[in-house]
Nucleic acid binder design. Structure first.
Lengths: 228, 228
DNA sequence: GACCGTTGTTTCGACATAGATACAACCGCG
DNA sequence: CGCGGTTGTATCTATGTCGAAACAACGGTC
């Protein structure tokens, strides 16, 4: 079974949520210069699109400046507010895409200490500090590969001097090159290696090849877990 | 206008996607011991729930072991496969929650170099390396607060010895304490400070108070941007 | 062998979403 | 003053989703 995680992103204000479909509509208005043409090119009904715009504006404020009559019959264009909203949507969507696409390592373990939502988990590789909303006992921690920093063992800050609460010494097990980004699997003693995403630049400077020693560190606040 | 980013998480296999509603159903079956009672407690129709299970199993493999007849008329329970699926869903959902909830800094700038999807962006605070799928010119970079590492200026690895490609010297501008987690705003010379999430532990050890000097670093692979 | 509560299957209808259509209002322009 | 293309509004219909209801099949237990 080959599952893949996907998502729908929304921006919500009050009880109205703006989704991908709405963004598509706003972009089309921007492109076409009129609500009518926008609905046309998207093969949607004008009536519905118009009602939706009104609905969105009640929650998000003015979005589309609409003029009727005049040369060419009128037209519509986006407000600055709408452009900000579109940019915000694009940003959050791209953040979510990061989560959906990027490899992560899953560590299993048991909670041995809890302080608010901050917990200490005993795993095969040692203690890991992480965020787990609630529960106790067995947990699964997920560590996104883009949140893992690799440093040279000779020049790694002592734990008191960095905010990365989790650090492990390990050796590179596998290097998988992408276009400009390498995925490094580092053995840290647990039953499975930690994956880290680094630029080819970094890979070269740190001399990351199989067998090379390296220190992996990641922040507690970027390590999230769920009870199982 | 106060917008908030939300999301719906899915796991998809082929053209079937498993969503929150399906997860709710599977959990109810696990809890109630029968498909019938599960549908009952969720106020859903048994018929629809049953069809949905069949549909999901065609894509995700065996999920529910159903027995009819026998003592008590039969019953159903989840397969190990289904439990794995539930855990996977919980993990991805919790990862998405991280993105939705956690503060981020948005830096505006212009692309000055591109190498694949890896770009160098000129911002008010200096050059930042980031991932931007396509486009050129103006971009907005979002840097999640949980991806920012703070280190002591006295003990920060030289750039050649760390995979964190972006580093800036700054001074703490503001500290906002949560329960066990502090949000630190660090001034790095741009028009807006970088936000970092650190544990209270780290805040104390690094002596993070307004006015204190600190080095902020974050990975290029954790910095995503969109063209504007 | 009848009972009983479950699974399996079909059909119907309620409901929400969205397209289709029609028509009024608007206003610069020729 | 009418034309033309737009916005604004109302109503109808198609579609898909999901609950409601009814009934057959199943198989331990008594």
């Amino acid at each position: 079974m080959d599952t893949q995680s996907t998502f729908d992103a929304y921006l919500s204000a009050g009880d109205v949520t703006l989704g991908a479909r709405d963004v598509e509509l706003l972009r089309a208005i921007d492109r076409e210069g009129s609500l009518n043409n926008a609905a046309e090119t998207l093969s949607r009904s004008y009536a519905h699109a118009q009602r939706r715009i009104v609905e969105l504006e009640e929650a998000f404020g003015s979005l589309v400046e609409r003029r009727r009559g005049g040369a060419g019959g009128g037209g519509s264009e986006l407000t600055d507010n709408a452009r900000d909203l579109l940019a915000a949507f694009a940003r959050t969507q791209s953040s979510f895409e990061g989560v959906a696409d990027i490899a992560e390592t899953v560590l299993s373990g048991d909670i041995v200490d809890r302080d608010g939502e901050l917990v200490t988990v005993e795993t095969g590789a040692g203690h890991v500090r992480a965020l787990v909303p609630d529960g106790s006992g067995a947990v699964e921690l997920s560590i996104r590969a883009d949140a893992v920093t690799l440093t040279d063992p000779e020049d790694t800050p002592v734990p008191e001097h960095t905010s990365a609460r989790n650090r492990f010494s390990g050796t590179v097990r596998e290097v998988e090159m992408g276009e400009r980004i390498a995925r490094i699997a580092v053995d840290i003693g647990g039953n499975q290696p930690i994956l880290a995403l680094v630029t080819e630049d970094s890979r070269e400077k740190l001399g990351l090849e199989p067998g090379h020693d390296v220190v992996v560190s990641f922040k507690a606040t970027a390590t999230r877990g769920v009870s199982v």
